[in-house]
Design a binder for these strands. Structure first.
Lengths: 230, 230
DNA sequence: CTAGTATATTTGTAGGACAAATGTAAAGAT
DNA sequence: ATCTTTACATTTGTCCTACAAATATACTAG
């Protein structure tokens, strides 16, 4: 007995708050609510749905956290532009995430790093390249790069993609990425070998090379991390 | 007058609920709460913070939505594994997101698609390749590929990365991606030219080629989308 | 028609109440 | 002493009432 019982999902018994949250989100999309549109007030919603105002407020509190709705005290609520990454931001804490989630995010960052080449070449400006050169010239003199140096260089790259969401997403992923790699390093006790492709090399390719060459260079630059995979 | 006044950010006047939410999240991380740990009950929290139980419940309701805490009726609350993408999922609605957010996500998907090569080659199995072959053989016979065909092929690729979070992330991004591209296509009225690199070609490279070759092939395959950039 | 005043509206917050079910302690039976 | 039953305390989910505060609206007076 009990064989394969683990495969049975529990019937999700949603609380009133959960259900109202879902209903409201559906209601907003079905009726094509757009940012700025006025929402019915809390009491109306509560009466329509036949639940207490408390329940409605708890549901709305969630949507407010996501930035979907904005409450203007004493003037009613309006639809609003949600913050795409607001929800994920509060959750990306290495100490709460599961091991596998952390690993997934570690890999996700590697994927992103390899994928930005086209955008860098499409959008790089002379000003960007000058600023990047300052960074790599400074780092060339250092015997070893700190975490901050890494962030400065790669952060500038994300900057140059001109994609704000991507930029912020990266910075959210970084702590988890660092944490995973630090944990791995502790276990494996690997020798820190000199970077076969340095930040300076990447800069040169970005300035004078092609996206293909840049991807290839980045792949080698990240090999320390890719070596931990699979 | 009024010069550059737009640059002044309003002093954020946080509601009690906002503040309690922040305080609780800090409290959990500072005190190294781990999944499974018991939490103080609502009344205790309310009294310690000198707010009403309502405010505490609204804050906890948010954390519950994120999956950070789990409430077991009549047995107290415990810490829990948050769902990394749960927050973003509820917000990725093309009709609510701003134009620039949509564009960012469109680009983000292109970045991801270009970045997965290493993982595909590191983790592909014969079984995967067989399944992929079935898909591309079927599609080779079709005169034109539908949206579902695209999802089937690329979805299988994400599958093969073995990264569940990435997989789900992709599928969340897709509707926004589609929406942006559909809007662009309507404006530009571009001729739909035959794919210079088909799904079948990608399959062949994945089976017998190298990551570099795959990235190059994928870049060409995605050129319809990259042409819209910048 | 304008200026000032009163009223209605609506969110944020507080606090009380109770059902329901769980775990625990106490009481009773064998 | 051990087991069974009963009673109690706990805690979340839900409902209700109340009120402050500030805005928008209606109203009144000059």
């Amino acid at each position: 007995m009990n064989s394969k019982l683990g495969l049975l999902e529990p019937l999700e018994s949603l609380s009133m708050t959960d259900r109202v949250e879902n209903i409201l989100r559906e209601y907003f999309t079905e009726n094509a609510f757009k940012p700025g549109d006025a929402l019915p007030n809390e009491l109306e919603i509560a009466q329509k749905l036949n639940v207490s105002r408390n329940v409605v407020r708890e549901a709305l509190s969630r949507l407010r956290m996501l930035g979907m709705v904005e409450a203007r005290p004493r003037r009613g609520m309006i639809m609003s532009q949600p913050d795409v990454l607001g929800g994920i931001e509060k959750v990306l804490n290495p100490f709460i995430l599961s091991q596998s989630n952390q690993q997934d995010i570690f890999e996700l960052r590697l994927i992103l790093e390899m994928g930005i080449a086209e955008f860098l070449f499409a959008r790089k400006t002379d000003k960007d390249l000058d600023e990047l050169e300052l960074i790599v010239e400074k780092q060339k003199k250092l015997p070893v790069l700190s975490k901050e140096d890494e962030i400065e260089f790669h952060g500038k790259l994300y900057d140059m993609t001109g994609n704000e969401t991507f930029q912020r997403f990266q910075s959210l992923l970084f702590p988890v990425f660092e944490h995973v790699f630090a944990t791995l390093s502790k276990q494996e006790e690997q020798a820190v070998i000199a970077d076969p492709v340095s930040h300076y090399d990447l800069f040169r390719v970005l300035k004078e090379g092609t996206p293909e060459e840049f991807r290839q260079a980045m792949r080698v630059h990240l090999s320390v991390y890719y070596n931990t995979i699979k």
